[in-house]
Design a protein around this nucleic acid. Sequence first.
DNA 1: AACAGTTCTTAGGTA
DNA 2: AAGAACTGTT
Length: 793
Amino acid sequence: MSDFNADLPLSARAMAARPAPYLDGLNPAQRQAVEALDGPVLMLAGAGTGKTKALTARIAHLLNTGRAYPSGILAVTFTNRAAREMKLRVGGYLGEAVEGMPWLGTFHSICAKLLRRHAELVGLKSNFTILDSDDQLRLLKQLIVAANIDEKRWPARLMASIIDQWKNRAWRPDQVPSSEANAFNNRGTEIYAAYQERLKTLNACDFGDLLLHCVSIFQAHADVLESYQKRFRYILVDEYQDTNVAQYLWLRLLAGGHKNICCVGDDDQSIYGWRGAEVGNILRFERDFPGAVVVRLEQNYRSTPHILAAASQVIAGNEDRLGKTLWTDARDGEKVRLIGHWDGEEEARWIGEQIEDLNRGTRGLNPFSLDQMAVLVRASHQMRAFEDRFLTIGMPYRVIGGPRFYERMEIRDALAYFRLAVSPGDDLAFERIVNTPKRGLGDKAQQTIQRIARANDLSLVAGAALALAQGEIKGKGAGQLRNLIEGIARWNRAIGTSGMAEADDDLIEVIRPDGAALNHIELAEQILEESGYTEMWLNDKTPEAPGRLENLKELIKALENFENLQGFLEHIALIMDNESDAGEAKVSIMTLHGAKGLEFPVVFLPGWEDGLFPSQRSMDESGQKGLEEERRLAYVGITRAEQICTISFAANRRVYGQWQSQMPSRFVDELPGAHVDVLTPPGLYGGGAPSMASTVEARAERADVYNSPGWRRLQSASARPMSQPREAGNMVIDGTATPAFEPGARVFHQKFGYGHVSSVEGDKLFIEFEKAGPRHIVAKFVVPAAQADDVPF
DNA sequence: AACAGTTCTTAGGTA
DNA sequence: AAGAACTGTT
């Protein structure tokens, strides 16, 4: 604990004498932020202004000047990705000296670590489990049913989100203000209290608890707080605008003594209000920490002037901001490109082609690697269209932030088995896998187990054993249940003998005291083997099965990085992204939220349609505030782009499986015309669809296209409902006026393309399509080719 | 208990 | 559209 009284390690001494290469190449503002080491510092860092650089240089400087040891610096981020990058970059400055920056991590991982050490202060044991959302919902559902609440009208997920919000605000059950008393049919606080009670008996906590328990400990135990205030001499916080109340309290408590806290953030990139983030935290910093040094990073090193101008113009529409003026030395570059499409599929098709073109290196530009390109969507369901399209054209892609590895069914099942092996009393894990694989233990048998366990105040495993002994479970299931229980006991024993050292101090390696017969990897394999879980997937003939087995193998492989199953389970609960596939270059598909902190030379921003983006729900729930957050999201999206930024929207999109006509996003109107190129979708010029290359070459002639009738038409045409919803892949231009067709007329069909009418029978046409061949088509599904050329949508 | 077929619900972002 | 929840059948 006595970090500061110990002698300086030699490496630190040596470092203090070394020059400071990390200071080179910092601009004056960055340098100021790096060198103001003591006291509170607020770094207002616009997008692409080199805040990570400044932040990591600051850490390097702290170490280099001998101000602190690696273990004396607390550096918090929101994502594991950010933490990893920071580690990497500090390492780059200082070599292996940073090996142990034990307190550089996400809020959640750091809190978990703290909580392990002091669990008993909040009534937990240090080996508590961290619930995943599945467990959480199952538990809540039980409580809701037990409380005699109609689970249909008051679903567990609603309660879960209420609890989440309360925890974000740092309200423990007894602190929920009376204004919230009507939540969840007036039973919200009651269920919340019961839930926390239940968590305690289960020796478990959820994500929100990690923070909240720490805050509780700090508030109730001055000595503990003080020891950490002393330990963490310097505190750095990334993405400060995203902190919620609980995190804010946590930070304020820890920084309370020395106030050596450096917060980095950008109010314009605050996009997590829905998750409880309080922009107020950053707006209030100077009041919270009087005398704070405020540094603004405004020079952008990322994007071309056009892209920057577009982003600035959009964000200028927000009232509620500190205001920054981003500027850049860069010149020229592409304007932001804007294009409308008929529907989401065409949008995906077009973007696919664009990516192929750029990858090939058309129009005099150097080719871009697929790694350098990204599609950023507002809502994850938009990803599908791109995945489908990219699959058909065989373009490698990666979905970032999709269903996480450890959230997949087979992984969770396997983890539940591991959890049981580690702690047989883990009832939630038991519930998950009693009948997976099928053991003939259906609802009835499970109810019996529950009943007996409850009546005897036993864990489910113990209850199940008792039920067997009492002969309450009979038939096929009994034998299998016995197998399972014995298996759990055996695995648990195996863990006991494999020996774990007290992994309490972060810097100390975990030592295996004896050469146990089975290491944890073998044990894990054996568990999956003996439980019949692997076999279940081997026998499964669905197309996913092989992939799932693959994932299980990966899971086992991931174990290699850990000393034991416990440690692994701990990490798995906190770790998010699996960056296992470096190999081949791939286009990235991700949400705008997921893209924060990243940058790409080429960025596509599809789906800029009112209701989708800005999201209707956001506006309904939070009105103007919601809209402003959406606008910040637009800002984040545009500023991800370094060289080429393409915004698009579709006139029709399927929503809830229904076709709906869409209006371009209001953010489209907010783009500055002088910095935007309006592209015409290919295929609408009649015959020869111009490729990207020609549209860009033609840019000069269409320099004022933004104010051209074409653009106005684009806007006005889109502003009124363009068409009836499309059905079955066919196109309806206007349901009220089906044009008459003469034989010989050239027509356009959304799915089959262009063709000539060869005969007419009532409303049915016989059409020779140029690509798709001869077909019978109902007249309302085609339009005259001229009309298709004329009306962009 | 297991399965197949049905209806119903739901659809924002994340640690 | 896709998944969860529900129903009926074997």
